[in-house]
């Protein structure tokens, strides 16, 4: 019994020491990580809506949006919305940011995280610029990466539908 208690005490002591190390590192790095994440999000927002100046994150918990939509940002001067969509690609999930203006036209789309076979999914979004919901289907699918490109199209369609819904909510 004494041996078990001793073993347990050693284990608890090691856990405590590691916790102190982790807490100290977290204390030092958390503000920098948060700053980096804000900068990264702002960069993506500007990329998909170049004319946008300030963005405000909307609370979407009470809205009945597609489950693929995880975040919605509104341009504070009423230039449009930026939608963050998580969609299933060929392999892992793809995270896509899509900007849509008040005329329901795509201002930009960019894949901010993926592990896809296409490889150029980060630039594929440029094909959707200045397209509306009717033009989306005319965007070419890339041979050899059909699932990835179809997922991209579905994501942009979801973003366009979301903006229509948000404008309805606004009215």
């Amino acid at each position: 019994m004494k041996k078990y208690i001793k073993n347990l005490l050693v284990f608890v002591c090691i856990c405590t020491v590691m916790t102190v190390f982790l807490a100290t590192t977290n204390h030092l790095t958390a503000p920098i990580i948060e700053k980096n994440q804000i900068a990264s999000t702002n960069k993506s927002l500007k990329e998909v809506m170049p004319k946008g100046e300030n963005f405000e994150k909307l609370d979407i918990t009470k809205l009945s949006l597609s489950s693929s939509i995880t975040e919605v940002y509104k341009e504070t001067n009423g230039k449009g919305y930026v939608i963050k969509i998580v969609t299933a690609g060929y392999g892992n999930d793809m995270i896509i940011m899509c900007g849509v203006n008040m005329e329901d036209v795509v201002t930009g789309a960019v894949c901010i995280s993926s592990n896809e076979t296409l490889g150029k999914e980060k630039t594929y979004g440029e094909n959707f610029i200045n397209k509306n919901s009717k033009d989306i289907n005319d965007v070419d699918t890339i041979a050899g990466a059909t699932k990835t490109t179809k997922a991209y199209k579905n994501a942009v369609n979801d973003a366009l539908k979301c903006v229509k819904l948000l404008k309805g909510e606004a009215k």
Partner: peptide, 25 residues
């Protein structure tokens, strides 16, 4: 008898520290 759990706690701790540092810098 407790060496593997102890090693895992130590290694996981240092991996998390390195992860936080890489994520920040």
């Amino acid at each position: 008898t407790m060496r593997i759990p102890c090693y895992i706690v130590i290694i996981a701790g240092f991996v998390t520290i390195v992860k936080m540092l890489v994520q920040a810098f």
